[in-house]
Computed example of a mutant assay.
Amino acid sequence: MIDPIQIIERYYPTDTLGYRILLTHSQQVAELALEVVRQHPELACDERFVYEGAMLHDIGIYLTDAPIDSVAPPADTTAQPEILTTVTLGNGDYLARYARRYLGRSEYWIYIYLANKEQIEDPDNIPLGTEIKIPTPQSVGIIGNEETDLAEAKRLTRDYYSHTAH
């Protein structure tokens, strides 16, 4: 049995944005793949094998060596979208779960709250069915330096709780 995260960590330094993006993407693909496997027991798939394959499906992306003329021109990075996706909160959902999934750390929940504070009165008590926007890391100031990013998220969280009646 292999540990896909250990393999990813061999090639991607854990304190980089590339690592967090790959890990988040790989976890999302693995979740979807396992959901399909579980919906189709007639396939008799090895869940562990599917998980490992899904987690590692893009690991070599940074080592690709395509001829330069086959590569698409670089995207315009000056106009990055501010919203990554939208989600509808279900039973048991909370902002920290979505922060971990889309922004890389559960402590970044404050950024999701701030992007949605018009429709979220209390981030600790959000009604089921509330649709929220997940901001891109860049749009909320996550720069890829984990120590700096985490310190800023904690500061924002302290500020929020110091100004509310919680």
Rank of each mutant, 00 (worst) to 15 (best):
18 G>K: 12
128 L>W: 10
85 T>S: 06
8 I>L: 14
155 R>M: 03
35 E>P: 01
147 E>H: 14
123 P>T: 12
144 G>K: 01
38 R>M: 05
70 S>E: 11
76 D>I: 04
122 D>L: 04
40 H>G: 05
5 I>R: 09
143 I>A: 14
67 P>Y: 00
76 D>F: 05
60 G>D: 13
143 I>R: 15
48 R>L: 12
35 E>S: 09
6 Q>D: 12
35 E>H: 09
41 P>G: 14
137 P>C: 10
116 N>V: 03
131 E>G: 05
124 D>A: 14
130 T>R: 13
100 R>W: 04
101 R>N: 01
91 N>W: 07
65 D>P: 03
64 T>Y: 11
105 R>H: 14
29 V>W: 00
144 G>C: 03
142 I>H: 08
103 L>H: 01
151 A>E: 15
23 L>K: 15
13 P>D: 07
18 G>D: 15
10 R>Y: 09
57 H>L: 04
87 V>C: 06
144 G>W: 05
133 K>T: 05
139 S>H: 03
164 T>N: 07
74 P>W: 06
16 T>V: 06
85 T>F: 02
97 R>F: 09
126 I>V: 15
24 T>A: 15
49 F>V: 10
101 R>S: 04
67 P>K: 00
31 E>C: 03
127 P>M: 09
109 W>V: 02
131 E>H: 04
26 S>K: 06
146 E>P: 03
36 V>K: 10
128 L>F: 12
23 L>N: 08
49 F>Q: 14
163 H>T: 13
24 T>H: 08
11 Y>Q: 09
80 Q>P: 06
147 E>F: 14
10 R>D: 14
94 Y>G: 00
38 R>N: 12
23 L>W: 02
77 T>F: 11
23 L>R: 14
66 A>H: 09
